[in-house]
Amino acid sequence: MTVSTALELRNVIRRFGTVVAVNDVSLNVSKGEFVTLLGPSGSGKTSTLRLVGGFENLDGGSILLNGQRIDHLPAYRRDTATIFQSGALFPHKTVAENVAYGLRMRNVPKDAIMKRISESLDIVRLKGFEARYPAQLSGGQKQRVALARSLAVRPAILLFDEPLSALDLSLRLQLRAEIKRLHDELKFTAIYVTHDQGEAMAMSSRVAVMNAGAIEQIDKPETVFHSPTSEFVYTFIGESCCLPVRVTSAGIEDKKGQAVGLRLGERLAEGECRIYVRPSRLRLISEAALLPNQLTARIHFIEFLGDLYRYHLKAGALELAADHAGSIGHGVGDEIEIGWRNEDMRVFR
């Protein structure tokens, strides 16, 4: 193993009764890397994080931090620091006392603690808030104190447990940018758990998409977005429409057996399959004419989304949506042509 690996999970398993929450997960996090565990609720991402933090017991596998096994250690002996969803600040301690807590537990001398408090609060831009109590802070400020408290102990790895999910949208975007900035500046190692793909894409060095207790794909955000390796990753990241079809020697029909006006550039093997397209990549009417894949569909209803119009379309039993900047001059009930490029389509069986 190389020196640059900060955290290593080897075949980690965690069961709750008969449910396997974390199923044979292996993961390497390099020093300075920001890895996001992205997945729906129940996908095992939080359980994985809690295993690293020491809040859950392992049912199999091992966890190494800087080359040392830590899975047998209690949470208070691990060099990890968690930023909880709720902030979990100590309500009876001031901001300064909160930040000092981890340092006091590590028996850092008093003057060093004072210095570290002011450094940490400086980093999260909360200078002057030392004497306040958590109840006197806003949601965003609480999370920044939580971040300062964890940064102050200079852990080998920071563990973020959906820290922004309790905040409103504008604050979430603001703090997201701030965490990104801090990571660029301080180069800390982190695992970040979220179900928000926007957060995952914006902040991560690598994104691990989790489903049913396992990592489906782990790669750079761009790769995960543009080249998803599985149907789950494709549908979980970005918007998509599913066209369930049956390919026969006579042509392509929907699930009810009716022929649909779907003309594909490449011939598909016979049998049932699911064709996926993204609403943002579909072209309409005249723009569709030159594209290799085309579908004739009827406008079902139209949503106005501000920047875009979203056309909800039906072709037999197939339903899909297409985005278009501005109106296309057709109304509900009209039949129109839709087209897309080969690279904007995925077929799964």
């Binding site: 020491g54 208070y76 969803q85 981890g102 408290r149």
Partner: peptide, 24 residues
């Protein structure tokens, strides 16, 4: 979570009990 935060920051069970749980 507040109790867990104390463990997380290095507070053992006894210190956590006196520093965090009792004041709460």
């Amino acid at each position: 979570r507040i109790v867990e935060a104390s463990y997380d920051l290095g507070g053992g069970p006894v210190r956590t009990f006196f520093e965090v749980v009792l004041p709460l």
